[in-house]
């Protein structure tokens, strides 16, 4: 068993300064798009797309009425709720599958492709994601003292233990699922219901962890 008490801080190499703004009282889809674009900027991913100076792209959920508009401008990117204008491109995606398109985009194909790349930043490694999750959520009231993430690696069972104290919470899955949940790319409850994630803790802790997962998915 490999055990790591802390994970390295993510490198800022290649990170770009892109101003991503979301509207006041934003809906979940707006928040999630904003967070994802910021993740791409922090990772230095799809910088050409993030620096697009004009154009609007509609993002629609494939199975709910959720929709948002990404507007590129000289001063950054604005994300707003709904589609109130005729966009230059439109993309329909599965919000529970990391923005995977469910049909061919319409309109400006280059713009659409760029946005899809910007919406799929590389996930951090599961250890790094767990550490970032812990850093972002450890102050939430009622969160367990210790978070243990467990996976099966090439050398057997690996785990990371974060925090210290009497109460603990264990999450076990494959590395990609852990990275997805901890980074906010995946929805905790949806993954849990899919059977891809095992947890050990109390019902109250699951409730708190759900709130924590919302924080990294929608508000990071």
């Amino acid at each position: 068993m490999t055990e790591t008490m802390t994970a390295p801080t993510p490198t800022a190499a290649g990170a770009a300064d892109v101003d991503v703004r979301i509207e006041d009282d934003a809906s979940p889809i707006v928040r999630m798009i904003g967070r994802t674009l910021r993740d791409s900027a922090r990772a230095g991913h799809a910088l050409d797309a993030l620096h697009t100076s004009s154009g609007t792209v509609a993002i629609r959920s494939h199975d709910t009425p959720q929709a948002a508009t990404i507007s590129f401008g000289d001063n950054g990117i604005d994300v707003s709720s709904g589609v109130r204008i005729e966009p230059d491109a439109a993309i329909t995606v599965d919000l529970n599958a990391r923005f995977a398109p469910t049909e061919d985009p319409s309109g400006d194909a280059d713009l659409a492709r760029g946005v899809l790349r910007a919406l799929t930043p590389p996930l951090p490694g599961w250890r790094e994601a767990a550490q970032q999750f812990w850093d972002a959520t450890r102050s939430i009231a009622g969160i367990p003292d210790v978070l243990i993430a467990v996976t099966e690696g090439p050398d057997g069972v690996e785990q990371i233990v974060l925090g210290d104290g009497a109460t603990q919470y264990l999450m076990a899955s494959d590395p990609d699922t852990l990275a997805g949940v901890f980074s906010g790319a995946d929805d905790l409850i949806a993954v849990l219901f899919s059977g891809a994630l095992g947890i050990q803790g109390t019902l109250s802790q699951l409730s708190v962890m759900t709130g924590a997962s919302w924080k990294v998915r929608y508000d990071a």
Binding site: T202, L203, S207, T210, G211, W214
Partner: peptide
Amino acid sequence: LPVFGSAFPAWRGHL
């Protein structure tokens, strides 16, 4: 559906 998102009060346990 059970409402999740925050810590339960101390008196709530497992149902």
